[in-house]
Design a protein around this nucleic acid. Sequence first.
DNA 1: CGTTCGATGCACT
DNA 2: GTGCATCGAACGT
Length: 202
Amino acid sequence: MSLPRAFYDRPTLEVARDLIGKLLVHVTKAGRASGVIVEVEAYIGENDPACHASAGPTRRNAPLYGPPGRAYVYFNYGMHYLVNAVTEASGRPAAVLIRALDPREGVDLMRRRRARTSGRSADAFGTHELCRGPGNLTRALAIGRRQNRVSLSGGRLHIEDVGLDPGPVAWSPRIGIRVGTERLWRVFVKGHPAVSGPRDRR
DNA sequence: CGTTCGATGCACT
DNA sequence: GTGCATCGAACGT
């Protein structure tokens, strides 16, 4: 079952916690690829200095101000797409960045996609390496600009509740930002091998 | 183990 | 022109 828009129309930290254990799915011509979400970060409002909305509305961050339950995809560091789920009501800019997945369907497809853009051979990738990190998982699932603003409820890119218990989670500072590090707005499955970051943050 | 650093595109000021 | 919500190879210890 695809999560309904109402799932995202809630306080962002609750949505972040509840996205852990859900299945992110992308269906393309090449096939179906999916993974269980094991790590996310919340970016909440214009007062959060790390949120793209911190400088007010712009063309780039417009999806953050739009309706909940859509994808916000943007290009970073000249080579990586990052995918977020937009949360909260329209006019309240907030989202949850998806940072790592435990691969389920289409693992071989993921290997080929990662190999194609990295120069490494497909069989060099361990399963838990394929979707570890926000830039890696968009590669493995072939998520890019075209998925910006699409609905996450029922389309080719969507998030399903598959009734999994992800196990214990932990909260930490967000990774890769220079400001707003005092907020513990990163959630992840404790000890999961697909979670990104230094070992003491997994 | 640990840290540093280059690759690379584009939105924004 | 500046600065990224990154990644991984290359180095030092």
